[in-house]
Design a protein around this nucleic acid. Structure first.
Lengths: 136, 136
DNA sequence: GTAATTGCAAACCATTTGCACTAGA
DNA sequence: TCTAGTGCAAATGGTTTGCAATTAC
């Protein structure tokens, strides 16, 4: 996602109805300028601080959730008590490395989600999450 | 799981290396006497208290984790900040009803986990979790 | 008797919230 | 200007922990 081109980061935020504030721009660059990432609020906060900017942890949480609401991020839950945010919002699934606590995309998009079960009663399938847990 | 028969609850706990204490027996009955269940520590604690027994929440947590370690339960993570424990330890997957916060088994066991990806490098697949999130 | 188990209350830790302050438009 | 956004510090909520008291064997 090259955000230094035609649709600038500021444009993308504006299009999503979010003011391109200094904080949101800084976070957007960290999130989207370096390809696909799986990141926690804590880590992202550490990273912004490392750039010299002062952004509160509360704002990092707000921003991650706002980005998720407007479809710029996808939230992934693999461990009770910690949320990951994925900058790749397309349909794909994950390896979870239990020892290191790291998430990675499963390459080749195609885990066979061919024969999905019918949603019960009056329900509707919102999404399908596949987590392949790895030992090592 | 009829635990009032040959392998009594006490036997099963002993076999797993856990002393069949009053608390563990009470929890085991609530968990295993009524078919497959998806339960949180809070709910289970409420249920024991309702039977008139005094069991601390800490013991409920300890017990759930011990049962999980010895393979009597399986832990399911669908929401950051809350753990579910599944009394059905066989391979199967779940619907998560987001509105009600309830988990249910996907019937017919067969989500096509046919073409699983290779585990990267020197890793080994420990388990595959499939969560179908429902809007309803 | 003695090691395992329990209960309690305090500690934890990621996340959320209330509210005064700041800054985009 | 005027509202959306931010920062801080306190609150939340599920879970864990330390340790003394209890219990299974």
């Amino acid at each position: 996602m090259d955000m230094a081109q035609h649709p600038t980061a500021a444009d993308r935020l504006r299009d999503a109805g979010l003011r391109p504030t200094r904080q949101r721009l800084a976070l957007a660059h960290l999130l989207f300028d370096a390809g696909d990432r799986h990141i926690t609020a804590e880590i992202l906060h550490t990273e912004v601080l490392a750039t010299g900017m002062r952004v509160s942890l509360a704002t990092v949480y707000n921003t991650l959730h706002q980005f998720t609401e407007v479809g710029l991020l996808r939230e992934i839950v693999v461990e009770a008590g910690r949320s990951y945010f994925d900058t790749n919002t397309s349909v794909h699934h994950h390896f979870f490395h239990e020892r290191t606590g790291k998430l990675s995309d499963i390459p080749g998009q195609q885990i066979p989600i061919g024969t999905l079960p019918e949603a019960p009663d009056g329900t509707r399938i919102k999404s399908v999450d596949v987590i392949v847990r790895l030992d090592d």
